[in-house]
C-alpha cells in the first residue's frame, strides 16, 4: 500500500526545476570521470598532446591501453589481472570479518546493561580519529615479531608476514570503530518491546541475536558492507604496508600507485588501470544499492 501512496505522492512532488538541477549536478559530477574514460581509450601521443575533449572532433580509439595494462606483464611485474584477484582476496574477508565483529559489539553496546557501557562506546567512537599511519609500525611489529612483555611471550611470532592475514586483521581493526558506531546507531533503534517480548518468550542473548537482531539488521549490514568494500578496495596504505612487499598479496591500488609518478608519461596505461580498478566498486554499488533504501541509518529517524 505504501507503494501506491508513493507513486501518487511522486507526481504531486515532482518539480521540474528540482529535477533539472539534479540532472545538472549529476552531469557536473560525472565529467571528470568521463574524461578519464575517454582518455583511457586514446593513444598515448594524443593524451599527451591534446585535451580529452578533442576526442569528439577527432576520435582516435585504441584499446591497446587496456590490453597493455591487463595482460602484459614484464619479467618482474605480473599483469594487472593478478593484482585484481589479489584485491578480491583481500577485500571480501576484510569486509566479512569487521562487520561480523562490529555487529556483535554494537549489539552488546546497544542492548547489554553493564557499567561503563557508554564510556566504551564513546572511546570506540573517538578511536576513529587515530591516524592510520601511526599504527603501522606497532602493528607490523606485532605481526612480524609477536608480542612479549619483559621477556614473557604473550603472542608468539605467528609467521604470517607476507600472507593475506596481516592485511585482513589490519583492515578489520581500522574498520571496526566506524562500523560499531554506525551499526550501534541502527541497533539501538530496534523497538524495546520487540526485545522484551523475545525475552519473555525465553530467548537467551544468543538466540535473541540469531533470531531477532541479526535478521532485522541485514539491510544496515548490507549498506555498511558497501562502504567497507569501497574503502578496502580503494585502500593503498594498508595493502602496501602489511603486504610486506610481497607481490603475491599486493592489491591493485599498490600497482596503480607504482605506475603514477616515476614517469611523466605512461598516462595511457594509468588511465586504463585507474578505470579497471573502478569497475568492481561500481558493480558492487549497483548490485547492492537497493539496500540503501532501507539501509544503514534508516533507524536513526526518530519516531
Amino acid at each position: 500500500m505504501s507503494t501506491l501512496n508513493r507513486s501518487r505522492a511522486k507526481s504531486a512532488f515532482s518539480s521540474p526545476i528540482a529535477s533539472a538541477a539534479a540532472v545538472v549536478i549529476a552531469t557536473l559530477w560525472t565529467i571528470p570521470t568521463f574524461g578519464l574514460l575517454i582518455s583511457s581509450i586514446r593513444p598515448e601521443q594524443a593524451i599527451n598532446n591534446s585535451g580529452w575533449w578533442t576526442f569528439f572532433t577527432n576520435p582516435e580509439i585504441s584499446f591497446e591501453n587496456y590490453e597493455k595494462v591487463l595482460f602484459q606483464g614484464t619479467l618482474i611485474q605480473p599483469p594487472m589481472v593478478q593484482y585484481f584477484f589479489n584485491s578480491l582476496a583481500i577485500t571480501l574477508p576484510a569486509v566479512v570479518f569487521p562487520i561480523t565483529l562490529a555487529v556483535f559489539a554494537a549489539y552488546a553496546l546497544a542492548w547489554f546493561d553493564f557499567k561503563g557501557r557508554d564510556f566504551i562506546f564513546f572511546s570506540i567512537f573517538a578511536l576513529q580519529v587515530v591516524p592510520l599511519q601511526l599504527t603501522l609500525i606497532p602493528l607490523l611489529q606485532l605481526f612480524a615479531k609477536g608480542l612479549s612483555i619483559n621477556g614473557i611471550t604473550i603472542i608468539p611470532n605467528l609467521g604470517i608476514t607476507g600472507t593475506y592475514i596481516p592485511i585482513w586483521i589490519a583492515h578489520t581493526i581500522f574498520g571496526l570503530p566506524l562500523a560499531i558506531f554506525l551499526l550501534h546507531n541502527f541497533l539501538r533503534q530496534i523497538p524495546r518491546e520487540l526485545v522484551e517480548a523475545a525475552k519473555v518468550d525465553g530467548a537467551g542473548w544468543f538466540t535473541m541475536f540469531r533470531a531477532l537482531i541479526f535478521p532485522l539488521s541485514i539491510p544496515a549490514i548490507a549498506s555498511f558492507a558497501i562502504f567497507q568494500f569501497l574503502w578496502v578496495w580503494n585502500d593503498l596504505l594498508v595493502g602496501l604496508t602489511f603486504g610486506a612487499g610481497s607481490k603475491e598479496v599486493a592489491p591493485m591500488t599498490v600497482r596503480l600507485a607504482e605506475m603514477v609518478g616515476t614517469r611523466g608519461g605512461g598516462w595511457e596505461v594509468l588511465t586504463a588501470g585507474a578505470f579497471v580498478s573502478t569497475v568492481v566498486p561500481l558493480i558492487v554499488f549497483f548490485a547492492l544499492q537497493r539496500y540503501f533504501v532501507r539501509g544503514l541509518l534508516a533507524g536513526s529517524v526518530k519516531g
Binding site: I137, L140, K145, G162, L240, T241, A244, G245, T262
Partner: peptide, 15 residues
Amino acid sequence: QEFEAQISVRVEGGT
C-alpha cells in the same frame, strides 16, 4: 614508489 617512507616502516616493524 613509497620506498623512502616504507623502508623505515618495514625496518621498525620487523619486516
